[in-house]
Amino acid sequence: MTRQTRVAMMAGVGVLTLGMGAGLLAVFGLPVSLGSAPAGPPELQHVPQEAAVVAYADVRRMMSSDLRQQLGALAVTPQASTPNEFEQQTGLNIEQDIDSVVVALVPADAGVDGDRSPHMVVLARGRFEASRLEALALQEGGAATDYRGIRVLTLKESEGTPAALAFLASDLVAFGPAPMVQRAITASLDRRNVLSNTDVMRLVAQHDGMHAWAVGRFDDLMSAARVDPAQAPAGLPAVSWVSASGTLGASIDGVVTAEARDEAAAAQLRDVVRGMLALGQLQGGNAAAPATLAQAFQLSGEGRTVALSFSVPTGALVAMAQQAADAREARPAR
């Protein structure tokens, strides 16, 4: 065998070895980056693989937005300047201490015992006083245990599945029914998480970078909303996946997307939405703010996809809130 042949064969073996190495690193959980990172926030590594609905909100950005400040000023009840009871007990100010939240729903038949409604886990990133929360849980009759090296606080429940809180990292907690919290821990440690769920991640990638988004299987969303399929409108087209996302700035921009089961169902859904938009414009009448809202929506989509995008100026929302506040004040007190 000549040197040239040996080099060529070693090159082939080298590519295979490098590929094997990278693949096995990915399988056994060591970080592999080829210039791109998975879509969505890092909390998704704690979301179970079978999740049918996943939602994310950048709480910090929403709380600090101009819109929120303006709407807060119009609130009926002025914002309390002193800490409330929850904050006093937990040391947690939801408006200031929570940065982002991920909520995941796992269908009931996907491994968690109990009732048939979907199981939820909430992953919150922010600043938490672990020792204070643990002391509070123990004081209330709960328990503090370690599950696969993660501190888990199980809260005392008189009936049903007890709730649990796990400290996944110094700035990340998981909250939900105890079995779901354990699955959130397992999902990350065993690398069997939603990042390998191609259906969900495909939709997450479409909305990555938005301030808030939600993706999910339509049936499971209906189930989570406790809507009985038998009670659903008869003419509702067959929808398989829905997703929504939005950003908050000078305007609220967003898009709601539905994937129908086939093109005929998508066309039918477009007709339904088009009719609803027309009705909204009619009901808006001459009032400026509702008319602005109704005209802010645009219907699009092709094939099996139906997309409803909107861009609502925050000024219009503040104007509507102002009108409502004025109407409240004008109403005689009982």
């Binding site: 295979l16 990278a22 990915a26 399988v27 791109s36 990172a37 998975p38 390998s196 191609t198």
Partner: peptide, 22 residues
Amino acid sequence: LVVLPGVMLTYFLLTPVAQIGA
């Protein structure tokens, strides 16, 4: 030694990084 590395390259080019482990 030509086909298998070719498949390996194609796989890593097409598969999203997040799905390699699975």
